[in-house]
Structures are given as structure tokens and as C-alpha cells.
Design a protein around this nucleic acid. Structure first.
Lengths: 194, 194, 194, 194
DNA sequence: AATGAATGAGTCTTCATTCAT
DNA sequence: GATGAATGAAGACTCATTCAT
């Protein structure tokens, strides 16, 4: 029964993603994932060779998507020397077409799981993406980062997304909540322009 | 040798605080704390009756300090309807005398451990402090919190302090780093005044 | 193989009951139970969530059985002011149909484990049963208990059953052994009548 | 300071004996003995090389005393074919001069500790004494023991003494309590004569 | 495809014991 | 004579993982 098989597989992936988000990959328990997915530990290992491969299966598409997106247009992007007015306009646009904006692709369970990862061999790729992301942030906001400035901003964004994703079942509620904070942060950053 | 004894005790406290900060109290392992403190698990239990008491020994002074500070002046503080100019001036002052400002007392490993706590009987006190903190934030920035806005801002601040404390051995470096972000956030918030 | 599974489960229950009887629940070691049952500690926890639940699984049917039996006929029973002759006749009857007599239901590993219990949440139920038992003893032998008299007699009976159960693999041998003592005790008690 | 030294030593012995009686040698904790004796574990090991030697120091005099007593008069004693009247008279005498009777020497914390012993190298001596004791019982009451009859009676006596010793601080209260049971048991036994 | 039995190393904690001071 | 620091093994229990069915 092709359908039923996929159902189980998808249920496991869904439950695992939730647990990985809530407790972090390292502290999520296979036993509890099995229970919440209404199956057995053994059966999970029938679909996924290991906890790490389960993680991979969840994250790889997202990772590749981001890596691809990151590699594009990295130069033309330097919108540096934006004036405040330009920046505000920019933000409006982002907010308007959030889902297709670069920022929009972060608003995702899986990205948060990835960026909170502490062990696993995906760590290397996480680090690369993190590095790439900070670079983007720097260029985007024209920050000459003498230290970990944009790293922190990024971390805040991550934490914020995690917070609203866990708190709100409904994705749109989560997004609305997120925007409140994003607004503040964006304003803060552009208020420092010049 | 009196000195040696205290050395071990302090080493355990130091290592434990580091691990609690990095991994969170719940996920820190007594085995690893023992290893990093160059002693045995058994010996840790010679100094501290339990993991929870080890946590208490680390946190209690800090908790009492904060609880005391929170209880003071809670009303005179409503600087509401600050103009942007006043707000900016305020921020300069905070930055200038950070360590003695209310904000300064947060810049502390132990506070972060506390605010990240998920189990232990200290949870109740953490929740109280957290509640008190969000209240302060709301009054301070004159936020009428329609939803979890200030909760998120607080979470950001916590994450930020955690980040810089882990990254920088030197406390002043950490502080300098923190200010960069704090500046942005503060500016963002006051840019929304009116 | 369905059979094998139950074999292990039963083996664990059997070994655990033996260890609980010999050393008492509190001092029985899961490690040793695992060894004697030719399995691993982890596997025991596959069958029973905890040591206490293992105890429950062993005791609950017995407890319910006893509680039920105790609640019945508690009043009609007052055979007080029995003459020696009546008492002796009574004893013969008990001996003759031991297994169905009230006394017979004590002749059980599990009852002894229960009555020797010192911790666990089953303590409350043990105490109740113990209290009920001493009451029965008092009424049965028409003892007006100025102090801990019947408590001691009960304790003796318990110890005696424990002793013969540990010493004799064969249940009938154990019973025969027990009767010798019971005879003595019973005679002693009725010799004091009047 | 000779006096003080002995005080500590005696305090340890006293506390240890209490704990051994209450929890049994195997389950008594050196840490708790140290605490109750107002000293440290290390200091206990200054007086006694090991837990087992501490046990020995407590039991050896008693053991030797009993072993000696057991070896004497073992033959002249056969009061066999006592009539009930003689037996009752005998019992009165025992009760009257209990402390110096053979039975009296059992009414002792230390004897109970010994007879409840489950490990330690003193086990062998315990078994010997136990064997010797049952033999005495048999001869005393003229029992031809086809099985473990007198063993059980002995066990009852032991349990009874343990019970009253733990329950009553005052030694005379304990003895009075014990006699109630002893009376019953004795009557029971002699009622079976012929 | 699915079950659940089994394992061994990990969790926190207590134990008896040793040793330097 | 006394302290308490230190150790390693054992206490109950959870973990990710494997395997026979």
C-alpha cells in the first residue's frame, strides 16, 4: 500500500521536525518521536537508517535550497549607501512579498533546526550557510563588520523565528508576530545609517 | 591544603557554569563536568549533594540580587511618553554607567543560565523574574503589549548576551559586542515612538 | 516467536519475585535480577517501565484479592469466647481446607513481599491490609490488645511463611513445615484462653 | 586525650550497632553512621579498618560468649520427657531469672544483628551458632526434628526480639513485651508434649 | 511494512574505602 | 586523632540502535 507507507513516513518526518525544533536535534528522543508518530522505534529505523539520516532527510532539501539561493546574485545585491527612505521602502516590499523574499526562506522550521544544530556532520554545512548569511546581512545593510555584529543580529532573527514558530500553530499568526520584531530591528539598523 | 580544596570547588563551579550556559542545565552532563574539571563524578558529589544543588550554588546569589533589584523603584520609573531625544539621552547614560544600571545586572553568565532554565525547582523564581522583566520592559519603552512583543525582545536580549558571553572569554569584549546590538535594538524601538 | 517473549517476561517476574522475597524490594538490585533472568537491565525496562511497576505487576493481583477477602464477613466472624475445644476443632478445619481458608491466602510469596515492603507507593495499601489483619487476629483469638501483642504474632506468622517459602522449592513441603509452627502458635494462644 | 578517644570510639560502635539492627549490616550506610556519630567517615576508618571489622568489633565478644555458653553442659541438659507441670515450672523460673538464663543471653541487639547477617565472613560462625541453637531447642523441648521445625521457632524468637528492641527504647519495656509472646509460644510447645 | 525484544553505553546518584594533610 | 578530598564501582533508569520475526 503505497499511500499508507508514505503516510507513516511523512508522519515520522513531521513529528521528528517538531521535536527537533522544540528540543533541538541532540535532545530529541527517538522513543518519543516513535510514540508521537504512533509507530515503533524499530519501524522508524526501517525508514531511516539512523537519527542522523532522519535529520538529513528533513534538512537536506532546505539546505540545498538555501545554498543555491545564497550563491546567486551575491554581488549585484550590494544595495549599499541606501538612504533611510530607500531602506524603508525596501522593507515595505519585503513585508509585502515576504514569502518570495530572501528573508522569507528563513521563516521555516527546518532552517531553524539547522541553525540550532550542535552536533551531526551537517554542522559544517550549517557553518558555511551561517557564514554566508552574515555576509549577506553585512552587504545588505552595508555593515562593515569589525566583529560579530551581524552574527548577533542573525542569531536574534533565528531565535525570534523559533520563538514564534513554537508559540503559534498557525503560520500566519507566527509571521505577524515576527514582523513586529522585525520592524523594530530593521528600524534600529537603518536608524544607524550614516 | 586549604587552597587546593577551594581550587577544586571553584573549578567545578566554573566548569559547571560554563556547561550550564552552553548546553543548558538539563543537558549538561555531570560526567563531562567532572572530566573538564579534572576530577571524578563521585568527588563532585562530595562538594555538592546533587546536580540541582550545584545549580543553586551557582545561581542563588544572582537570583537574590536580581529579585532585590526588581522590587525597588518599580513605579517612579515609568518614563513613558519619552521623546526620541530623551530616549537617546537615556541610552547614552545607560551605556556610560552600564554596570550599575538595571540592564547591567543582566550581563551575567548566571542570569542567562537562570533565564534558560527549563526544569529544577528554581523554575518558579525564574518565571517570576521573567514576568517582572517583561513588565519593566513594557514600562520602560512604553509598550502596550498587544501580544508577545516584549517577550520576544527580552528573549532576543537574553540570546544576545548568551551569544557574546560564550564567544568572548574577555568580559569587556563581550560587553562591547553586546552594545552594538543593543544600540540597534534600542534605536529600533524608539524609532517607533509615536 | 510469541512464546519466547512471554518466557522472558515470566522469567523476569519470577526472578524479581524471588529477589524481592529474599532481600526485600528496596535492597533487590535490578542488575542482579537481570543477570539471574539471563537478560540485560535495558531489556527489563523494555518490559517494565520501572522497578516500582515491576513490583506492582507482581503484587497487584494479590493485593486486590486480599483486600476483597478482608472486606467480607468481617462481623459474623467474632468467634469470641471460644472454648478450647471449639478452638481446637476450628484449627483442624483450617488445616483441612487450608487453601480456601482466610489463612491460606497468606501462604504466598507475594503476600510476604507486600508485608515486608518499606517504600513504594503501595505502602499505604500494605498498612491498610496490615491493620485489617491485626484486627482480624484480635477478633479471631478474642485478644484485647493492651499493646503490640497481635502485631508481634502477625509478624511471626509472616516471618515463618517467608522462611519456609525461601527454604522449600516445593510448595507442599513449605506448607507442611509451616503447619508445624502454626500448630504450636495456635495451641499457645488457646492455652491462654481464660 | 584518652577519654575523648574512647568516647568517639564508643559512640561509633553504639550508632553502628543501632543502624545494623535497624537496617541490617548490608544496608547500613557508613556515611549515615558517621553523621549520627557526629564524626566523619574518614575518622571511622581511623578506628576500624573496614565496615566488616566494625561489625566484628561489635559482634565478636557476643559471639564468643554465645559459643562458649553453647559448648557447655550440652548433655546434662536433656530435660526430656518433661511433664507439662515441670515445663510450666521451668518457664516460671526462666522468666524469673531471665537475664542469667540461656534464653536471656539472646535478648541482645548484637545477637540479633548476628543472626540477621547475610554477608560478611562471620556468616560461617553465625550458621554454626544457629545450628547449635536449634539443637538446643530440640533437646530442650524434646523435639525430634524431622525437618526445620525448631529452626522456625528460633527464627520467630529472633524476629520477636528484633521487633521489641527496635520498638522500645527502654529495655524493660521491651522485655515485658517479649514475654507476652514468649508465653504464648512456650505454652504452645508444651501443649504438644506427648 | 511493521513489531518489539535485545543490547550497551549513557543519565544522575550513593557506596565503601583510601589518603594526604 | 581527625578532617575531608578523592576514587571507582554499583544503584535505578534512558538512550540510540539492531535484529529476528
Amino acid at each position: 500500500m503505497q499511500i499508507k507507507k508514505d503516510e507513516v513516513r511523512l508522519k515520522i518526518l513531521e513529528v521528528a521536525a517538531d521535536e527537533f525544533l522544540k528540543r533541538g536535534y541532540e535532545n530529541a528522543s527517538m522513543r518519543i518521536i516513535a510514540q508521537k508518530a504512533h509507530t515503533t522505534q524499530g519501524n522508524i529505523y526501517h525508514y531511516f537508517q539512523s537519527k542522523e539520516i532522519l535529520l538529513e532527510e528533513i534538512l537536506l532539501p532546505t539546505i540545498e535550497n538555501i545554498e543555491c539561493m545564497m550563491s546567486k546574485h551575491i554581488e549585484g545585491e550590494k544595495a549599499n549607501l541606501m538612504t533611510k527612505e530607500q531602506a524603508l521602502k525596501e522593507m515595505k516590499e519585503i513585508e509585502h512579498d515576504f514569502d518570495r523574499s530572501k528573508l522569507g526562506c528563513f521563516f521555516d522550521k527546518k532552517v531553524i533546526i539547522l541553525l540550532k544544530l550542535e552536533s551531526s556532520h551537517l554542522l559544517a554545512r550549517k557553518e558555511k550557510i551561517l557564514y554566508s548569511l552574515t555576509e549577506h546581512l553585512q552587504e545588505y545593510f552595508n555593515i562593515n563588520d569589525d566583529s560579530h555584529y551581524s552574527e548577533i543580529v542573525l542569531n536574534m532573527l533565528i531565535e525570534c523565528v523559533k520563538h514564534v514558530l513554537i508559540e503559534h500553530e498557525n503560520l500566519n499568526d507566527a509571521k505577524a508576530e515576527f514582523f513586529k520584531f522585525f520592524n523594530v530591528l530593521f528600524n534600529g539598523i537603518i536608524s544607524q545609517i550614516r
